[in-house]
Structures are given as structure tokens and as C-alpha cells.
């Protein structure tokens, strides 16, 4: 049932604001893009169902990530061990570190926009094909007339360059 409009709107704003961080957190732990989407979807639903339990004024992201953590564990239980990217020990370590990184996305997002502007047109197109239209790498390879491996390598190079650029941009801002 809908709760009072104001409360729902406020809760909605919290969920919207937290999506990037929640996705990052989940992807960090599951290491699988499709699984991350599914777990995020389940987490959103659980958060909405539990909305009465959230106390306004408290740390929403922390609460949301704890819910996401349980959803990751539930996902791992469902999957056979051989289909999991990481073992429990690594998951525990990553889970302990991930909230901090997930919570620091905002400045990185601003830096990313600047760094994207520095990409060559070809690289920017590749990123857009991969992320904006969700095309499979094989599909992209066909379109650009390159091998699948070449596209993988190029995407990886671009992401690494963007990562370096973001770190550099953030470091310059601190100075």
C-alpha cells in the first residue's frame, strides 16, 4: 500500500541516490554484470518492502548496503560453487572494504565526465556502444570490423585509462 506521499517521495529519493553505490557494491561482490543487475533488483524490492523499518535521519546508504549484502549472500547460496567468481574468504574482505569505495562515487563521477571528454572519438564511440546500447562485445566487433579479442582489449585499455585519469583528476583537486 502506498505510504503517505511525502514519506514515499523521501524514500524514493534515498533509493535513487543510492543506486550507483548499491550497484557498485553488488558488482564488487558478485563480479558478474547480469547477476549484479538481478541482485540489485532484488535489493530494491526488499528495501521497498522494508521501507517502514528505515528511520528517517539515519544513514540510508549504510542500511541499503547491509540489505544488499544479504541479497548477495542469498544469490551465492542459489548459485553452484563452480559458477561463483570468488570464494567466501575473498567475499568477506571485499565486503568489508566495498562500502567505503561505494560511498565515494560522487567525486569520481564528476571526474569521469571530464575524463570522458578527453577520450578519442573512436574510444568514446566504443564506450557508448558497450554501455549506452548494451551491445554484446561480439556485436560491436562486427560493427567496427575488428576481432572480439581486439574489442575486449580496447575496452579494457579505455577503462584503465579512465581509471588513471579519474585518480589523477581527484589528486589534482586535492592539491
Amino acid at each position: 500500500m502506498p505510504i503517505a506521499g511525502d514519506q514515499s517521495e523521501a524514500f524514493l529519493a534515498h533509493i535513487m541516490d543510492a543506486q550507483r553505490a548499491m550497484y557498485t557494491y553488488v558488482l564488487t561482490l558478485v563480479g558478474d554484470l547480469v547477476a549484479a543487475d538481478d541482485v540489485l533488483q532484488e535489493t530494491n524490492l526488499v528495501l521497498w518492502r522494508k521501507r517502514e523499518e528505515f528511520t528517517p535521519g539515519t544513514d540510508f546508504l549504510s542500511w541499503a548496503l547491509s540489505v544488499a549484502h544479504f541479497q548477495v549472500l542469498a544469490y551465492r547460496k542459489r548459485r553452484t560453487r563452480d559458477r561463483l567468481a570468488f570464494n567466501d574468504e575473498l567475499i568477506d574482505r571485499l565486503a568489508a572494504e566495498a562500502p567505503q569505495h561505494a560511498a565515494e562515487l560522487s567525486p569520481r563521477r564528476v571526474a569521469l565526465v571530464r575524463c570522458m571528454a578527453k577520450l578519442s572519438p573512436e574510444d568514446r564511440l566504443l564506450i557508448e556502444q558497450r554501455y549506452a546500447t548494451s551491445q554484446a562485445v561480439g556485436q560491436i566487433a562486427e560493427q567496427v570490423g575488428r576481432t572480439v579479442n581486439a574489442v575486449y582489449t580496447a575496452l579494457n585499455r579505455i577503462r584503465t585509462n579512465l581509471m588513471r585519469c579519474i585518480e589523477q583528476t581527484l589528486a589534482e583537486e586535492v592539491e
Binding site: 550497484y23 564488487t28 570468488f86 571485499l94 572494504e97 562515487l105 554501455y131 581509471m163
Partner: peptide, 25 residues
């Protein structure tokens, strides 16, 4: 990743970039 904290930091940063690209686009 298990043995090297620096590798885990890099992993978090890489996932962060991927996540931002995913959301920005």
C-alpha cells in the same frame, strides 16, 4: 586479490569506473 591489498584497491577502483560508465550511459 586475496593476498594483495593494493590489488584489491585497484579492483575497487576498476569496478567503480565500470559502474559509473554503466550508470552514466
Amino acid at each position: 586479490l586475496l593476498e594483495n591489498p593494493q590489488a584489491r584497491l585497484r579492483y575497487h577502483q576498476y569496478i567503480g569506473v565500470h559502474s559509473l560508465l554503466h550508470w552514466e550511459h
